[in-house]
Computed example of a mutant assay.
Amino acid sequence: MTTAKTKKKATKINRKEQILQALALELEQRPGERITTANLAKAVGVSEAALYRHFPSKAKMFEALIEFSEETVFGLIAQVIKKQDGVFAQVEKIMAIVLTFSSKNPGITRVLLGDALIGEHERLLKRTDQFFQRIETQLRQILREAELKGQLSYQGNISQFAEVLSSFIEGQLSKYVRSRFVKRPDENWVRKWLFFVNSVSVNSVSVKND
Protein backbone atom coordinates (compact mmCIF):
# COMPACT_ATOMS: atom_id res chain seq x y z
CA MET A 1 0.00 0.00 0.00
CA THR A 2 1.38 3.41 -0.98
CA THR A 3 1.03 6.01 1.76
CA ALA A 4 1.20 9.78 1.45
CA LYS A 5 4.57 9.67 3.22
CA THR A 6 5.92 7.14 0.71
CA LYS A 7 4.71 9.25 -2.21
CA LYS A 8 6.35 12.33 -0.73
CA LYS A 9 9.64 10.47 -0.29
CA ALA A 10 9.52 9.12 -3.84
CA THR A 11 8.83 12.59 -5.21
CA LYS A 12 11.79 13.99 -3.27
CA ILE A 13 14.11 11.26 -4.57
CA ASN A 14 12.89 11.72 -8.14
CA ARG A 15 13.46 15.48 -7.94
CA LYS A 16 17.01 14.95 -6.70
CA GLU A 17 17.65 12.52 -9.53
CA GLN A 18 16.13 14.99 -11.97
CA ILE A 19 18.47 17.71 -10.76
CA LEU A 20 21.52 15.45 -11.10
CA GLN A 21 20.47 14.31 -14.57
CA ALA A 22 19.99 17.92 -15.60
CA LEU A 23 23.42 18.83 -14.21
CA ALA A 24 25.07 15.97 -16.11
CA LEU A 25 23.31 17.07 -19.31
CA GLU A 26 24.31 20.71 -18.81
CA LEU A 27 27.92 19.60 -18.35
CA GLU A 28 27.70 17.66 -21.60
CA GLN A 29 26.01 20.40 -23.62
CA ARG A 30 28.19 23.22 -22.25
CA PRO A 31 31.74 21.81 -22.56
CA GLY A 32 34.38 24.09 -21.14
CA GLU A 33 31.83 26.20 -19.25
CA ARG A 34 31.00 26.52 -15.59
CA ILE A 35 27.44 25.56 -14.79
CA THR A 36 25.65 28.14 -12.66
CA THR A 37 22.75 27.32 -10.37
CA ALA A 38 20.67 29.77 -12.41
CA ASN A 39 21.27 27.77 -15.60
CA LEU A 40 20.64 24.51 -13.78
CA ALA A 41 17.41 25.74 -12.20
CA LYS A 42 16.20 26.85 -15.62
CA ALA A 43 17.06 23.43 -17.10
CA VAL A 44 15.16 21.62 -14.34
CA GLY A 45 12.27 24.08 -14.49
CA VAL A 46 12.41 25.15 -10.86
CA SER A 47 13.69 28.11 -8.89
CA GLU A 48 17.21 28.29 -7.46
CA ALA A 49 15.66 28.13 -4.02
CA ALA A 50 14.07 24.80 -4.97
CA LEU A 51 17.47 23.45 -5.96
CA TYR A 52 18.89 24.29 -2.56
CA ARG A 53 16.03 22.52 -0.82
CA HIS A 54 17.39 19.28 -2.27
CA PHE A 55 21.11 20.12 -2.28
CA PRO A 56 22.60 22.67 0.16
CA SER A 57 25.26 23.64 -2.39
CA LYS A 58 26.43 23.00 -5.93
CA ALA A 59 29.40 21.16 -4.45
CA LYS A 60 26.97 18.63 -2.98
CA MET A 61 25.50 18.09 -6.45
CA PHE A 62 28.95 17.36 -7.87
CA GLU A 63 29.65 15.11 -4.90
CA ALA A 64 26.48 13.14 -5.65
CA LEU A 65 27.64 12.61 -9.25
CA ILE A 66 31.00 11.36 -7.98
CA GLU A 67 29.24 8.99 -5.56
CA PHE A 68 27.13 7.67 -8.43
CA SER A 69 30.31 7.03 -10.42
CA GLU A 70 31.98 5.24 -7.50
CA GLU A 71 28.97 3.05 -6.77
CA THR A 72 28.47 2.11 -10.42
CA VAL A 73 32.08 1.54 -11.47
CA PHE A 74 33.37 -0.17 -8.34
CA GLY A 75 30.19 -2.21 -7.99
CA LEU A 76 30.82 -3.64 -11.47
CA ILE A 77 34.52 -4.15 -10.71
CA ALA A 78 33.61 -6.12 -7.59
CA GLN A 79 31.52 -8.44 -9.76
CA VAL A 80 34.48 -8.98 -12.10
CA ILE A 81 36.79 -9.86 -9.20
CA LYS A 82 34.21 -12.22 -7.72
CA LYS A 83 34.01 -14.25 -10.93
CA GLN A 84 37.73 -15.12 -10.67
CA ASP A 85 38.43 -15.02 -14.40
CA GLY A 86 41.98 -15.09 -15.78
CA VAL A 87 44.23 -12.15 -14.96
CA PHE A 88 44.01 -10.65 -18.44
CA ALA A 89 40.23 -11.06 -18.52
CA GLN A 90 39.94 -9.24 -15.18
CA VAL A 91 42.19 -6.37 -16.18
CA GLU A 92 40.53 -5.99 -19.58
CA LYS A 93 37.03 -6.00 -18.08
CA ILE A 94 37.95 -3.45 -15.41
CA MET A 95 39.41 -1.08 -17.97
CA ALA A 96 36.42 -1.60 -20.26
CA ILE A 97 34.04 -0.82 -17.38
CA VAL A 98 35.62 2.60 -16.81
CA LEU A 99 35.90 3.44 -20.51
CA THR A 100 32.31 2.40 -21.21
CA PHE A 101 30.97 4.28 -18.18
CA SER A 102 32.71 7.42 -19.42
CA SER A 103 31.36 6.97 -22.95
CA LYS A 104 27.82 6.74 -21.59
CA ASN A 105 28.26 9.65 -19.16
CA PRO A 106 30.13 12.47 -20.91
CA GLY A 107 29.01 15.15 -18.47
CA ILE A 108 30.12 13.13 -15.46
CA THR A 109 33.45 12.49 -17.17
CA ARG A 110 34.10 16.24 -16.95
CA VAL A 111 33.56 16.00 -13.21
CA LEU A 112 35.84 12.99 -12.75
CA LEU A 113 38.65 14.72 -14.63
CA GLY A 114 38.20 17.92 -12.62
CA ASP A 115 37.37 19.90 -15.75
CA ALA A 116 34.01 20.91 -14.30
CA LEU A 117 35.36 21.50 -10.79
CA ILE A 118 37.40 24.64 -11.39
CA GLY A 119 36.62 27.04 -8.58
CA GLU A 120 34.84 24.34 -6.57
CA HIS A 121 35.82 22.92 -3.18
CA GLU A 122 39.24 21.24 -2.98
CA ARG A 123 37.73 18.12 -1.41
CA LEU A 124 35.98 17.33 -4.71
CA LEU A 125 39.27 17.26 -6.60
CA LYS A 126 40.76 15.02 -3.92
CA ARG A 127 37.84 12.65 -4.25
CA THR A 128 38.13 12.41 -8.03
CA ASP A 129 41.85 11.73 -7.61
CA GLN A 130 40.96 8.91 -5.21
CA PHE A 131 38.61 7.51 -7.86
CA PHE A 132 41.48 6.94 -10.28
CA GLN A 133 43.84 5.86 -7.50
CA ARG A 134 41.39 3.11 -6.54
CA ILE A 135 41.31 1.88 -10.14
CA GLU A 136 45.11 1.82 -10.32
CA THR A 137 45.34 0.04 -6.97
CA GLN A 138 42.87 -2.61 -8.09
CA LEU A 139 44.80 -3.23 -11.30
CA ARG A 140 48.08 -3.41 -9.39
CA GLN A 141 46.70 -5.95 -6.92
CA ILE A 142 45.43 -8.22 -9.70
CA LEU A 143 48.69 -8.06 -11.66
CA ARG A 144 50.94 -8.48 -8.63
CA GLU A 145 48.97 -11.47 -7.36
CA ALA A 146 49.13 -13.11 -10.78
CA GLU A 147 52.87 -12.44 -11.01
CA LEU A 148 53.51 -13.96 -7.58
CA LYS A 149 51.54 -17.04 -8.59
CA GLY A 150 53.60 -17.35 -11.76
CA GLN A 151 50.63 -16.70 -14.00
CA LEU A 152 52.31 -13.93 -15.97
CA SER A 153 55.75 -12.44 -16.46
CA TYR A 154 56.51 -8.82 -17.21
CA GLN A 155 59.78 -7.29 -18.33
CA GLY A 156 59.70 -4.47 -15.81
CA ASN A 157 58.03 -3.24 -12.64
CA ILE A 158 54.47 -4.52 -12.28
CA SER A 159 53.43 -1.42 -10.31
CA GLN A 160 54.61 0.78 -13.16
CA PHE A 161 52.66 -1.37 -15.59
CA ALA A 162 49.50 -0.79 -13.52
CA GLU A 163 50.27 2.92 -13.56
CA VAL A 164 50.56 2.84 -17.36
CA LEU A 165 47.17 1.12 -17.62
CA SER A 166 45.59 3.68 -15.29
CA SER A 167 47.21 6.56 -17.17
CA PHE A 168 45.83 5.15 -20.42
CA ILE A 169 42.32 5.25 -18.95
CA GLU A 170 42.69 8.86 -17.83
CA GLY A 171 44.18 9.77 -21.20
CA GLN A 172 41.23 8.30 -23.08
CA LEU A 173 38.80 10.19 -20.85
CA SER A 174 40.71 13.43 -21.35
CA LYS A 175 40.71 12.92 -25.10
CA TYR A 176 36.93 12.42 -24.93
CA VAL A 177 36.44 15.76 -23.20
CA ARG A 178 38.88 17.61 -25.48
CA SER A 179 37.12 16.25 -28.57
CA ARG A 180 33.82 17.61 -27.28
CA PHE A 181 32.66 14.02 -26.72
CA VAL A 182 33.31 12.84 -30.27
CA LYS A 183 36.16 10.37 -29.63
CA ARG A 184 34.60 7.84 -27.29
CA PRO A 185 36.95 6.25 -24.73
CA ASP A 186 35.77 2.73 -25.60
CA GLU A 187 36.20 3.22 -29.35
CA ASN A 188 38.33 0.43 -30.92
CA TRP A 189 38.94 -0.87 -27.40
CA VAL A 190 39.66 -4.49 -28.42
CA ARG A 191 42.41 -3.40 -30.80
CA LYS A 192 43.94 -1.09 -28.20
CA TRP A 193 43.80 -3.81 -25.56
CA LEU A 194 45.93 -6.08 -27.73
CA PHE A 195 48.75 -3.57 -27.40
CA PHE A 196 48.89 -4.22 -23.66
CA VAL A 197 48.44 -7.98 -24.03
CA ASN A 198 51.44 -8.17 -26.33
CA SER A 199 53.69 -6.53 -23.73
CA VAL A 200 53.42 -9.46 -21.29
CA SER A 201 53.52 -13.23 -21.56
CA VAL A 202 51.00 -15.51 -19.92
CA ASN A 203 52.13 -18.59 -17.99
CA SER A 204 48.63 -19.65 -17.05
CA VAL A 205 45.29 -19.25 -18.77
CA SER A 206 43.31 -18.54 -15.65
CA VAL A 207 43.80 -17.44 -12.08
CA LYS A 208 43.67 -20.42 -9.76
CA ASN A 209 42.50 -20.30 -6.19
CA ASP A 210 45.02 -21.26 -3.51
Rank of each mutant, 00 (worst) to 15 (best):
T3G: 12
K5M: 13
K12H: 14
R15Q: 11
E17I: 10
Q18I: 05
L20N: 04
Q21A: 11
A22T: 11
L25Q: 13
L27H: 02
E28Q: 11
Q29P: 01
E33S: 10
T37G: 05
N39Q: 15
N39Y: 07
A41C: 04
A43E: 13
G45A: 07
V46K: 05
S47C: 03
E48C: 09
E48S: 11
A49P: 05
A50I: 09
Y52Q: 02
Y52A: 04
P56N: 08
A59L: 05
A59S: 12
A59T: 11
K60L: 09
F62L: 06
I66G: 02
F68V: 13
S69D: 05
E71M: 11
E71K: 15
E71P: 10
V73C: 04
V73K: 03
F74D: 01
I77K: 07
I77N: 01
A78H: 07
K82A: 13
D85K: 11
G86D: 13
Q90P: 00
T100L: 04
F101Y: 10
F101A: 03
S103E: 07
N105C: 02
N105R: 03
P106G: 11
P106A: 07
T109F: 00
V111D: 03
V111Q: 03
L113E: 02
G119N: 07
T128A: 07
T128L: 06
T137C: 09
Q141G: 09
L143C: 04
E147W: 06
G150L: 06
Q151R: 10
Q155T: 11
I158G: 01
S159I: 06
F168N: 10
I169H: 00
L173E: 01
L173G: 06
L173P: 00
Y176H: 08
V182G: 03
N188G: 06
W193F: 08
F196Q: 00
F196V: 00
S199M: 14
S204I: 04
K208L: 11
N209A: 14
